[in-house]
């Protein structure tokens, strides 16, 4: 609960940090569209190469981007397994008989135990998992001595591998793009950029300034209310409450006793803030001034040119 960092932004001073947030948002959206236009594995590889060049040029910490990929491991794995197991197009890369016998089941259990024991080395978890799968493959292929109970045929086609590679690399590009955006832009700047970009929505009765105001208030109050929640939880802990243990019913009761003060605090805070804003004559919809105005500079031109080049490139390879 302590030292909670909400938000992705890390301070820095490279090229990406000085681009106007509006340019960045539009560029990321266009680049995503361009990525989804690509159709073959060579094209997405080229796109990934461009993304890597941009990351290195913008001195964005690659470790952070890899961290953002973590929740995707399972998805990537599923894709790989499905494509490899079920795609029946193209030439055969691998064709082997997998056998299951009492001996191989024993070996598989041993392999699983070893894998779980080593799982505490979190840094290599992916590598470990891959070697675990390879181990299972060889156990079933070569190490099953009689009596063989059953056997099945594992056939991998090259199109299956290519398709999963395509999907995975495309996903990597998309995640990289959105991570770079949130790593190098403060949430407040993003809000300001969105407000400016969504202004045309006024035509259909949606006021982007109101949205931006709500987001700013919300971003401002997340740490405050989180702090209050922490205090309440600590106060309850000092009286013996424990949020992590107990039966479900106890947990629900504890959450309620946390939420009652939190809601009251939230109502109180919002009333105070509304009063404060009104007493300073804040009227929604009236023009306001800012400390930092957004300005375009030469970097935005460079970004725009690169973005347009990428988009034209992917349209061209799609059409030709």
């Amino acid at each position: 609960m302590k030292n909670v960092v909400i938000g992705q932004y890390i301070p820095g001073n490279s090229f990406f940090y000085h681009i106007d947030p509006r340019t960045k948002i539009i560029a990321v959206v266009i680049l995503m569209v361009a990525t989804f236009l690509l159709e073959t594995i060579w094209q997405v590889l080229a796109g990934f190469g461009i993304a890597l060049i941009l990351i290195v040029a913008g001195r964005v910490p690659i470790r952070k981007i890899i961290k953002g990929l973590k929740p995707l491991y399972i998805l990537l794995l599923f894709t790989l397994v499905f494509q490899v197991a079920f795609n029946r197009v193209g030439t055969i890369v691998l064709d082997s008989t997998m056998m299951i016998s009492p001996y191989s089941i024993l070996l598989m259990i041993v392999a699983t135990v070893i894998w779980r024991l080593l799982a505490s080395y979190k840094k290599f978890s992916l590598l470990l998992f891959i070697s675990y799968l390879i181990g299972l493959y060889f156990i079933m292929k070569d190490l099953a001595f009689s009596p063989i109970w059953t056997s099945w045929q594992l056939t991998i086609y090259d199109q299956g591998l290519i398709m999963s590679g395509f999907v995975i690399i495309r996903l990597l590009i998309i995640i990289t793009l959105s991570t770079v955006l949130t790593l190098t832009t403060k949430p407040t700047e993003l809000t300001q950029g969105l407000e400016s970009l969504l202004r045309p929505l006024k035509v259909i009765g949606l006021n982007s300034e109101d949205f931006a105001l709500i987001i700013s208030i919300s971003l401002r109050y997340i740490p405050t209310i989180l702090d209050e929640a922490n205090k309440i939880m600590n106060a309850q802990a000092s009286r013996g409450a424990d949020f992590a243990e107990g039966r479900l019913k106890d947990k629900v009761v504890q959450v309620i006793s946390l939420l009652v003060p939190m809601f009251i605090i939230a109502f109180k805070r919002s009333e105070e803030l509304a009063d404060a804003m009104e007493s300073r004559d804040f009227v929604p919809g009236k023009p306001r001034t800012r400390i930092h105005d957004l300005k375009f500079n030469y970097r935005d031109l460079v970004t725009a040119v690169i973005t347009v080049l990428c988009l034209t490139g992917s349209i061209l390879v799609k059409v030709l």
């Binding site: 109101d210 105001l213 709500i214 208030i217 919002s270």
Partner: peptide, 9 residues
């Protein structure tokens, strides 16, 4: 507006 902001938080 303020209430929306605080409750989104």
């Amino acid at each position: 507006l303020v209430e929306l902001g605080v409750f989104v938080a």
